[in-house]
């Protein structure tokens, strides 16, 4: 599975310019706690979160996550978006709440073991 497939199936809005949507997706991780993501998320997962703070970019970059998907129509702070572009981290957003988005991703076959 690649990011483009998720964007197409779930009508996600891509916020980072020139984002590489050919990246592979190995699974999903849902959390709003940065320490939890740093500790437990795995490379290639998409990270579903309500957080918009600058620190999420560093966490995603550190763990080699495929993308960050914000829920409930949350938008990154300007500095978050800026840093994401610099560090080549893909940020997307959806109007869905996290539970429903995860449900749909699960439906598409993503897992988190």
């Amino acid at each position: 599975m690649i990011l483009q497939q998720l964007v197409d199936s779930l009508s996600l809005e891509v916020l980072t310019e020139g984002a590489d949507l050919m990246r592979g997706v190995s699974g999903g991780y849902v959390s709003d706690m940065i320490s939890d993501v740093i500790g437990n998320a795995r490379e290639g997962q998409v990270w579903i979160t309500f957080q918009v703070h600058l620190n999420i970019v560093a966490a995603a970059s550190l763990k080699g996550l495929s993308a960050i998907i914000m829920v409930n129509n949350r938008r990154p702070l300007p500095e978050t978006l800026q840093r994401a572009s610099e560090e080549n981290v893909v940020i997307m957003t959806t109007s869905l709440p996290a539970f429903d988005l995860v449900g749909l991703l699960y439906d598409l076959g993503l897992r988190c073991r």
């Binding site: 706690m33 940065i34 957080q51 918009v52 703070h53 620190n55 949350r74 938008r75």
Partner: peptide, 18 residues
């Protein structure tokens, strides 16, 4: 919405999301 001056330890407690 989203703006917050909370330090990281507050965010880890589930608050400070602006």
């Amino acid at each position: 919405e989203g703006y917050s001056t909370a330090p990281d330890y507050i965010r880890e407690m589930g608050f400070g999301s602006g």
